[in-house]
Computed example of a mutant assay.
Amino acid sequence: MDKVVVLNPHAGDHDRDLESWKELLPWDIRVSQEPGDAGRISRELAENGVPQIIVGGGDGTIREVADSLMSLAKEKRPQLAVLPLGTANDFCKSIHIGPELETAIKAIKEGLSVPLDVIQVTLNDKTFYGMNVACVGFVPEMTKRVSGSDKELWGSLVYALKSVETAQESRCYHLAAQLDGESYEWDSWNIVLGNGRFAGGGVPIAPEAELDDGLLDVYVFNGETKLDFLVEGVLSLLGQHSQSVGVESLKGKSLKLNSDLSLPISLDGELLGEGDVEFQLMTGALDVVVGQKTQ
């Protein structure tokens, strides 16, 4: 087997049964039944020498598989490809694979791949890995409010709706930060670290980020009032927040954050927990099939 699909049948709103997936996809399929299955299956396939794993799912499933593969030595990690089956599919947008399955299948068959960077997060003595965007503060607080039924009802619009709701209770965090060893102090309500460009259902949250440049694009939202939050939030939805005087834009390979308040952390749309945190970019850590426009 040179290619195997690890399929999350619960991702997004797809209603195909396994037989219809087998008719559509010209590769062997393994089905994930519950959280953790996709990562476990992918690791087993990698350990058995399968050279390419195709993740059929959303951003959370992709993160789960990437996290599992990063536990292997670099030379033993298989190539990764993706089928956009989730609600937001933000990572697919970042690698220029559109929402149509036919587009993704075509890209996989063409086989253009690039070694992409991976975000490593160390939180409460645990290590996590993801491909796309990490957030501190407001975005994780918003993510807590998004349920599976909300996604089914509203699709990617749910992120905008829950952002408005969360803004009513948002707060600032006093942060002691180290970016590539240089010290900063921030009073921020939201921090975004972009490896990929898109989050929250297509919002260009890190509009200049590149998945293979060896740098995280860091945005520190420093607004102090509810009006500041609103203005900076609207600008971020338009991908223009870097132009706001209240948003500091930086680049780096590593970022440490400490606060007297418990910091909520998310990675690729998944809540990781709360606490002081360290982010590190792992350069060229996973070989990923991409769309033509990344070249």
Results as ranks from 00 to 15, higher is better:
residue 273 G to D: 05
residue 81 A to M: 02
residue 97 I to L: 13
residue 10 H to F: 11
residue 192 V to A: 11
residue 259 S to M: 06
residue 28 D to R: 15
residue 152 E to S: 15
residue 59 D to P: 05
residue 90 D to T: 00
residue 51 P to W: 08
residue 284 G to I: 05
residue 36 G to N: 11
residue 72 L to I: 10
residue 80 L to H: 01
residue 224 E to F: 05
residue 200 G to F: 00
residue 162 K to P: 03
residue 148 G to P: 03
residue 182 E to V: 14
residue 35 P to N: 08
residue 178 Q to Y: 10
residue 242 S to M: 14
residue 179 L to W: 02
residue 21 W to N: 10
residue 218 V to M: 10
residue 167 A to Q: 07
residue 194 G to Q: 04
residue 175 L to C: 05
residue 60 G to M: 00
residue 181 G to P: 09
residue 24 L to E: 14
residue 213 D to A: 07
residue 6 V to A: 12
residue 38 A to Q: 02
residue 244 S to M: 10
residue 132 N to L: 06
residue 123 L to H: 08
residue 212 D to R: 04
residue 273 G to E: 07
residue 241 H to A: 14
residue 265 I to Q: 00
residue 265 I to E: 00
residue 216 L to P: 02
residue 231 V to M: 14
residue 155 G to Q: 02
residue 266 S to L: 03
residue 13 D to E: 12
residue 221 F to Y: 13
residue 112 L to G: 00
residue 32 S to W: 03
residue 103 T to V: 15
residue 1 M to F: 12
residue 61 T to S: 13
residue 205 I to M: 06
residue 17 D to Y: 00
residue 95 I to E: 01
residue 27 W to L: 11
residue 263 L to H: 05
residue 14 H to Y: 10
residue 78 P to S: 06
residue 56 G to R: 04
residue 220 V to A: 08
residue 23 E to P: 06
residue 70 M to L: 14
residue 63 R to M: 08
residue 290 V to Y: 04
residue 284 G to T: 09
residue 181 G to F: 09
residue 147 S to Y: 08
residue 38 A to N: 06
residue 202 G to Q: 05
residue 201 G to I: 01
residue 237 L to T: 11
residue 86 G to V: 01
residue 142 M to K: 07
residue 19 E to G: 10
residue 126 K to N: 13
residue 205 I to C: 09
residue 270 E to L: 07
residue 49 G to E: 12
residue 181 G to A: 09
residue 179 L to P: 02
residue 132 N to A: 07
residue 22 K to W: 06
residue 120 Q to R: 15
residue 66 A to V: 15
residue 116 L to Q: 06
residue 110 E to L: 12
residue 230 L to A: 15
residue 182 E to P: 00
residue 89 N to D: 12
residue 263 L to E: 02
residue 171 R to H: 14
residue 125 D to I: 07
residue 100 E to I: 04
residue 104 A to Y: 03
residue 287 D to W: 01
residue 208 E to V: 11
residue 264 P to G: 04
residue 94 S to E: 03
residue 233 G to Y: 06
residue 282 M to P: 02
residue 269 G to S: 04
residue 78 P to T: 08
residue 161 L to G: 10
residue 177 A to P: 03
residue 133 V to D: 03
residue 153 L to C: 08
residue 3 K to L: 12
residue 5 V to A: 09
residue 143 T to E: 11
residue 244 S to W: 02
residue 233 G to K: 04
residue 182 E to W: 01
residue 233 G to T: 05
residue 14 H to T: 13
residue 58 G to C: 04
residue 78 P to I: 03
residue 67 D to M: 03
residue 249 S to L: 04
residue 239 G to E: 11
residue 237 L to F: 15
residue 164 V to N: 02
residue 127 T to K: 15
residue 184 Y to L: 11
residue 250 L to E: 02
residue 10 H to E: 13
residue 79 Q to A: 13
residue 255 L to W: 09
residue 295 Q to R: 12
residue 150 D to K: 07
residue 161 L to K: 14
residue 87 T to L: 02
residue 48 N to K: 15
residue 86 G to T: 03
residue 235 L to S: 10
residue 39 G to M: 08
residue 209 A to W: 00
residue 114 V to M: 10
